[in-house]
Write a protein that binds this DNA or RNA. Sequence first.
RNA 1: GUCCCGUUCGUCUAGAGGCCUAGGACUCCAGGUUUUCAUCCUGGCAACAGGGGUUCGACUCCCCUACGGGACGCCA
Length: 471
Amino acid sequence: MAVVTRFAPSPTGYLHIGGARTALYSWLFARQQGGQFVLRIEDTDRERSTEESVQAIFDGMQWLGLAHDEGPFFQTQRFDRYRAVVQQLLDAGLAYHCYCTKEELEALREQQWANKEKPRYNGKCRDGAEPREGVEPVVRFRNPLEGNVVWQDAIKGEISIANTELDDLIIARADGTPTYNLTVVVDDIDMGMTHVVRGDDHINNTPRQINIYQALGAEPPVFAHVPMILGEDGSRLSKRHGAVGVMQYRDDGYLPEAVLNYLVRLGWSHGDQEIFSIEEMIQHFRLENVNRAPSTFNTEKLLWLNQQYIKSVEMSRLLELLPFYLQQAGIDTAEGPSLEAVLSELRERANTLVALAESCRMFYQDFDEYNAGAAKKHLKVSAAEPLTMLKEKLAALANWEAEAIQAVVQQTAETLELGMGKVGMPLRVAVSGSGQSPSIDITLALLGQQRALARIDQALAYVAARAEQAR
RNA sequence: GUCCCGUUCGUCUAGAGGCCUAGGACUCCAGGUUUUCAUCCUGGCAACAGGGGUUCGACUCCCCUACGGGACGCCA
């Protein structure tokens, strides 16, 4: 049988990192098995579902490159179907109307809690209940009273829960709308799901759903419950941990392939391998190798991976991604050296695309101020002499190439009998504004003769002003 | 509280009873390369939650305890 998996988020927020990993695992499994991957939006809670969240989920999935083969399906467009199934269960005596009010149920729960019992519906209306004036009934599923629900979870192994732990769950609200546990089952049956990969916060729903499958005469799919992702401090992921939507990772300068690589290795591994191409993930991923314990998110490692990708992706990929960040940073690369030449020098020293874009700035924009520490240390009065000589020699240079520039810097140091630090560093600060840049000859070569000379002039003026002040 | 799930370096993980003197990666530390920063290279610190079994032998199997997480909605 052809494999069918799905990702079925409820649109009540952005696509967060945990959901993204679940989606990835589900997608990888489908791809590997040559199966279908379905996207389904579980929006039966009209109160909390929003249009923006739906869009955020689409955006996140697209950014990550997790394409679906079918859907997106919206549960709100399938209400007729759910209603029919509820009626079917009612007719078969597998479900019943319940007239207990929310208040009564609330009181019951509180009492049970006080008695240190597990709060459960007491089955008051299970064996027939009189309609009550002014109370629209809900529909409850008649859960088996005895026995255990047992299944072989593809990740967690055998899980067994006693029916006595379960109660008669509501499958249709008083207003007639269906609830989650009913809709998932109906959809997963209708959509031919063979494998349900989802967060392990659903483990407790699974036995109820298996009972519904049985009531409906359907074979349950294989379940694979993936553990949660914890925040950096080991507690549940929340906004405070930057458990923001995946699109925030784009904005922060992460490559989607790095995020995917990080997520696939968070809770899963293939020997000692750290870097995986999409093809390798698809080839090696196994549900049964997914870790059973929750794992803690670690930004340091994500950053390292991101850096590995920035260093090693095709230049064309970098050129495709960077304009977004350059624009965000307000850097126009129309005038100046070729972006490709600049990037090939800078890519090894940035761990995010935001930082990479920022490091490009000096090649395209002039500046008025120096990094305070760098200027204080290197643009001293004593720097005037080497800078002046460098300026003269560089101005006289006919072929503006790294090799020739390097020779000039070296000659200057030798002539003045100064160490490289006393010549190279002032020059670096002069042209970059900070103490950091690629090697100085290449930096100058990229910058261009005119711009380089202008910046040396600017630095000389700065040094002169400083000398004036010192007096 | 009840039920379910889990527990190997700080973090992600390898480990399918002897290959374990517990391996790799990130971080960190110490060196080296680099006139800077970053990269890169070399080396180092660092873990089987605790207690009982089973076994000739347990990180690996079983039980208990502790701790962590989840669920207990007319949310999904």
